[in-house]
């Protein structure tokens, strides 16, 4: 069946492309000129004298260090998620017990807990634990709040493993450990990369927990660095936007190489 092209929808999507693309273009253009040029020519002009000065300046303002902190937080969060979620999903999918059903319900309800609602008690708990202004204090709650979505995604993937395969392994007399490592983990590789990318994105872009749980420069992550830059030197728009570009570079690299996993991860949030 042949359908005529939908011109109206095409036009609408071009308008949207413009709305998305223009700010991104302005941002890139602004970072490539110095402050005087930007102020004189305005945000819509094409850069006259291209310079990388804004980027080098950001690095000398400590962004390299914030970058490393964010990287550390991200790696740790991904590690915790990879350690905790696969056994959890395995139990949810394969264990027949009232407890695991209850656990699954708990994580479903957990989807609805907004991080904003718990920042006060989180501050209390983390301070009591002596982890205030410590990256570990940022890592733990960030990881906890990515668990529900990751559990949901991975459980969905593990459900697709057919019972026959389990039965075949049972014939060999395999223990749950062997079933887990030789059947479940290899067959949920796609799901594993999805939750890795999802939790990494959450951790990399996290702002709220670092905002209320850290204060010194030594434990500052990049989103917080951006925020401080804005409140302190908000006038230096090219420098600020260069920092924004720097903060998103790694995500873009991931987007280029693992676009599928990323899109799947974000779709997974919507659920089925």
């Amino acid at each position: 069946m042949k359908r005529r092209p939908n011109y109206l929808a095409g036009l609408g999507s071009l308008v949207w492309l413009f709305l998305i693309g223009l700010p991104l273009y302005v941002m890139l253009a602004a970072t490539l000129q110095d402050r005087a040029d930007y102020s004189a020519n305005g945000p819509l002009a094409f850069p006259e004298h291209v310079t990388l000065h804004n980027y080098t300046q950001d690095f000398s303002n400590g962004f390299g260090h914030f970058f490393l902190n964010t990287l550390l937080v991200t790696l740790a969060v991904v590690a915790i998620v990879l350690l905790l979620v696969p056994p959890l999903s395995y139990a949810i999918v394969r264990s027949r017990g009232r407890i695991t059903t209850g656990v699954f319900r708990l994580f479903l309800l957990g989807l609805a807990i907004p991080a904003q609602a718990v920042i006060v008690p989180m501050f209390y708990v983390i301070s009591k634990a002596g982890l205030y202004d410590n990256l570990i204090g940022v890592i733990l709650p960030t990881a906890a709040f990515s668990l529900p979505v990751c559990a949901l995604i991975l459980t969905g993937v593990m459900r697709d493993i057919t019972p026959d395969l389990y039965e075949a392994m049972a014939m060999d007399g395999a223990s749950p450990w062997r079933v887990f490592f030789q059947l479940v983990v290899p067959l949920s590789k796609g799901g594993l990369s999805t939750i890795m990318v999802f939790s990494a994105l959450q951790a990399w872009n996290g702002f709220l927990f670092p905002l209320v749980l850290t204060q010194s420069d030594s434990s500052k992550v990049i989103t917080l660095g951006l925020f401080n830059f804005q409140t302190e030197h908000g006038i230096d728009i090219p420098g600020l936007l260069a920092a924004v570009v720097l903060s998103m570079l790694p995500i873009f690299v991931v987007y280029l190489f693992a676009r599928r996993a990323l899109v799947q991860g974000l779709m997974g949030v919507g659920g089925k």
């Binding site: 350690l83 056994p87 139990a91 989180m122 709650p141 906890a144 019972p163």
Partner: peptide
């Protein structure tokens, strides 16, 4: 067919209880 016990779910559940459910109660 061998099935995993609920123990497999314990680490993640404990972690989640401490860092998400407990703060919600504390609020």
């Amino acid at each position: 067919v061998v099935r995993p016990g609920f123990v497999w779910a314990v680490p993640a559940t404990l972690f989640f209880l401490i860092f998400a459910v407990l703060p919600l109660i504390l609020v």
